[in-house]
Design a protein around this nucleic acid. Structure first.
Lengths: 347, 347
DNA sequence: ATGAAAGCGCTAACAT
DNA sequence: ATGTTAGCGCTTTCAT
């Protein structure tokens, strides 16, 4: 087995190193390298730059951060799992690179472990201790500890929420216009001729599921014959309840599921039960998160996660720049329907 | 519009603040909070802890990093795009959280812009300047600038490569056992009864495509009637060439594509040409990256990205701990085939 | 055009 | 059981 690359015991090169080699004092090096106070002899400048270059000097951002209070560092608490979040992170990243901001990425437990808050708080401390200039975070659950936010606000660190809005606090927020999505889903299905449409949502979910349902019902409500029922897909008995609805005399001809995973889950159940999609029942999902095992190409919604991330990053830049607090911004990106094979007119 | 949360102009609380409030000197606070030198009066200890708690003191990790040379910070240069990479990052993250390590995440341009190296170098500098303890990176292209690595090695920062191996350097590496994958793909198709199998690879790709082909040919080579041709899926004329192969008298009955996107691309072409999958032709992909528009559930390979990430993080932990350089580790995770609908015996 | 000195927040060696 | 001193790498007055 080979060894790793050359182990050169180079001394670390600091401004002091350069100053000594150049025969000047340290502040001189500092001012020249930072181009402050232009009154230096060309010869001196050149020498300093040459040495810095030759010794591959790199400034110590830790020191700079400590002194200036600015680290050009953003805390990002968003899980990478799932295309949706990954693309949000990409959107954030893209607007940060050019600004010289780099992100500290970390997130807490998965959605289903809301009680184990230790990990989440640990990460927040990591970010605070490293003096991030601001934080962008997706609340991991509806009951996301308020005390977490306090840890951040107390230190006057700008905080931007992503995806899931929290009603009990006032912070800048960027997410999906879920209501508009619900409306569009309803309009799509009704436009195809469906009226008896089952909504499949989640009680365990946060605002997003509820708001999609709200938009959906806004449209559906205008049709007297429309279905009033909804299915909680996260309840243990959801399979029985689903089959119950389907066996009714005037059972649904279409289903709007609040997420792609649940849409796919339902599709699996239907197909196992010998119900064809979209022949017997049309299905609309939400979020465009393909899984590779979905039995049919799903009509769904693109939430434009990249734009969500980009918007959040832009707000971030404003917040860390401004001296006085401005008004809160709450941006909702309109989702766009993606027509695929899982929806047709009722037959 | 509401304003953001309370703007409390709290002075920042440092150890000095605490020391003054407690009427002791700063080092006393330091030693008590860090539990060094246990010879302090209980009363003093309690007082210090109480004040620190009340004032919500948080240590300045920048200072600590600057003094100790350890930042508990890892540079991770892996794009989040694509489930594969996202899961690698997740694997890294999971083993880092417990160790109190947080990652600085950033990456350079997309694969197809190898010449624009500025962004990549910029990120590396960001990491180096912030004194990360080590770096985990996926080379963005085969010609990944050696000088980038030098920036890292020069400072004796441990470096671990992910996914794409670079032949011209010796560093720790974690990736997929691509050859084993190629072998398994060939064995699967041959097991089904196929012999005339077309390999669809990419000249623009790095080691991975070549190694998958190598494994594939190792098996295929033992069958005298087997196909010897391969298709470069990234060349402009690939559609014509593909159709050319298919129209031959003894055209392929199966295709092994080096990646899921290319497999799907080929599937689209075939279906447009009226060729049915897997009826007329079986297809095997690689990587398990579903897209939502794939016309058929693809037989493919799980590369276990989480484990790749986890392994890399574990090597990382070793490297930043050990004083003397150990042997280079090159880990290859064996991919596992996922049987889905796109492969059947030839008909 | 440059040096000297103080300080950022904290740790560690050296007192007492 | 606690205070003093020096120093990490660098910036920023204040001098000369």
């Amino acid at each position: 087995m080979k060894k790793r690359q050359p182990q050169n015991f180079k001394v670390k090169v600091t401004m002091k190193t350069i100053a000594e080699e150049a025969g000047v004092t340290l502040p001189t090096v500092s001012r020249i390298l930072n181009k402050k106070g232009g009154k230096y002899a060309e010869a001196t400048k050149e020498k300093i730059f040459e040495i810095a270059d030759r010794l591959k000097y790199r400034p110590n951002a830790l020191v700079h951060g400590m002194q200036s209070g600015r680290t050009n560092t953003a805390g990002v608490m968003i899980p990478v799992i799932g295309q949706f979040y990954a693309q949000i992170i990409e959107g954030i990243h893209n607007t940060f690179v050019d600004k010289g901001i780099i992100m500290l990425l970390g997130w807490g437990e998965n959605i289903n472990a809301p009680k184990d808050d230790t990990k989440e708080r640990k990460i927040i401390h990591q970010l605070v201790d490293r003096r991030v200039d601001g934080v962008i975070l997706r609340p991991s659950c509806e009951a996301f500890e308020l005390s977490y936010f306090e840890e951040i606000w107390e230190r006057n660190i700008p905080l931007i929420l992503i995806d899931r809005e929290m009603t009990n606090i006032t912070t800048d927020f960027v997410g999906t216009d879920d209501e508009a999505g619900g409306i569009a889903a309803a309009e799509h299905l009704i436009g195809l001729g469906h009226q008896r449409i089952l909504f499949a949502g989640s009680s365990e979910q946060v605002s997003t599921s509820r708001q999609r349902e709200a938009g959906f019902r806004k449209v559906i409500g205008e049709y007297p014959n429309a279905s009033r029922e909804s299915l909680d897909i996260d309840k243990p008995d959801h399979v029985e309840r689903l089959m119950h609805y389907l066996k009714q005399d005037n059972g649904p001809t279409a289903i709007f599921a609040y997420s792609d995973p649940s849409a796919e889950h339902i599709a699996d159940i239907l197909i196992k039960a010998g119900i064809s999609i979209p022949g017997d029942i049309s299905i609309v999902g939400f979020g465009d998160q393909p899984s590779g095992t979905c039995p049919i190409a799903l009509t769904t919604f693109d939430q434009h996660p990249q734009i969500i991330g980009k918007t959040a990053a832009e707000i971030y830049l404003e917040l860390i720049t401004e001296e006085t607090r401005s008004d809160i911004r709450r941006e909702r990106i309109t989702p766009d329907i993606i027509l695929r094979a899982s929806t047709t007119p009722p037959q």
